[in-house]
Amino acid sequence: EEWMVEKALMVRTGLGARQIESYRQGAWIEGVHFKRVSPSGESTLRGTTWYNYPEINKFIR
């Protein structure tokens, strides 16, 4: 699984929702560690946020 939603990321990493938000707003790079995608497939600020687990795992190492 490369891309996953927040709940799956929480299960895989043990991070809480606030921790994920903090990383997203600070250290993680949009387009690398996470992306927002609307149902139409376009990038957007209001779409579902998807997280790239392999890239996040590399960051944590």
Rank of each mutant, 00 (worst) to 15 (best):
I29Y: 04
T48V: 14
G26S: 14
E1T: 09
E21P: 01
Q19D: 10
R18C: 12
I20N: 01
G47H: 10
I29A: 05
G26Y: 13
P54E: 12
V5A: 09
W28Y: 00
S40W: 10
K7P: 06
V37G: 09
H33G: 01
T13H: 02
E2T: 10
G14H: 05
R36A: 08
Y53H: 04
Y53K: 02
R12N: 06
E30V: 05
N57E: 15
I60H: 03
P39E: 14
L9E: 00
V37S: 10
A17Q: 11
K7L: 10
F34D: 00
I29F: 05
R46Q: 15
L15P: 00
S40I: 12
G16D: 15
I60A: 03
V11I: 14
T44K: 10
A8M: 14
G26I: 08
A17C: 07
R46Y: 13
Y53M: 05
G47L: 10
K7F: 09
I56K: 00
L15E: 00
S43I: 09
R18K: 14
E55K: 05
S22K: 13
R12Y: 08
S38I: 13
K35T: 08
G14T: 03
Q25C: 08
F34S: 00
P39F: 11
R24Q: 08
E6F: 09
A8N: 09
P54L: 10
L45G: 14
I20L: 07
Q25Y: 08
F59C: 04
L9Y: 02
Y23L: 10
R18T: 11
Q19S: 05
N57C: 15
S38A: 13
E6A: 10
L15K: 00
E6R: 10
E30C: 04
E55M: 08
F59T: 04
G26R: 09
L9C: 02
M4E: 03
T48D: 11
V11H: 12
L45E: 14
I20D: 01
Y23M: 08
G31R: 03
V5C: 12
R36T: 15
R61A: 13
W50D: 02
N52V: 02
E30G: 03
W3A: 00
S38F: 14
M4Q: 03
T44E: 14
N57R: 13
V5W: 06
A17M: 09
G14M: 04
E2M: 09
A27H: 09
E42T: 09
R24S: 07
M10G: 04
G47T: 13
R24L: 14
E2W: 09
S43T: 11
R24H: 04
Q19A: 09
G16C: 14
W50I: 13
S40D: 14
E30H: 05
K35H: 04
I56P: 01
W50N: 03
R61Q: 14
T13E: 02
N57K: 14
Y51S: 00
G47P: 13
M4S: 02
N57A: 15
E1L: 07
V5G: 14
V5Y: 07
K35S: 07
I56W: 01
G14E: 03
R12C: 10
Q19L: 07
W28M: 02
I60G: 03
Q25M: 13
P54M: 09
N52M: 02
A17E: 08
E55C: 05
S22M: 15
T44D: 15
V37E: 13
G31H: 05
G47Q: 11
R24E: 08
G41W: 07
Y51W: 03
R24D: 02
I56T: 00
W28P: 00
F34M: 03
G16F: 07
E55V: 06
N57Q: 15
E42Y: 06
E2I: 14
E6T: 06
E30P: 05
T49A: 05
R18P: 08
S43H: 10
F59V: 04
L45T: 13
T49R: 04
A27R: 07
L9I: 08
K58S: 08
G41A: 09
T44V: 09
E21F: 07
V37Q: 08
K7V: 09
E30K: 04
K58H: 07
M4P: 01
R36G: 06
P39A: 13
W3Q: 01
Y53T: 02
S22A: 14
Y53G: 04
W3K: 01
F34E: 01
P39T: 12
V32P: 01
R46N: 15
Q19V: 06
G31E: 05
R36Y: 15
E2D: 11
M4H: 02
R12H: 09
W50K: 04
K58P: 02
V11S: 11
N57I: 15
K7A: 15
T13S: 05
P54K: 09
R12M: 12
W50L: 15
N52G: 00
S22W: 14
W28A: 00
I29R: 06
Y23K: 02
Y51Q: 01
R18L: 12
F59A: 04
I60D: 03
R12I: 11
E42H: 09
Y51P: 01
L9N: 00
G16T: 15
I56R: 00
M10V: 06
Q25K: 13
G47A: 13
L45Y: 06
T13A: 04
P39M: 12
A17W: 10
E55Q: 07
F59N: 03
P54D: 11
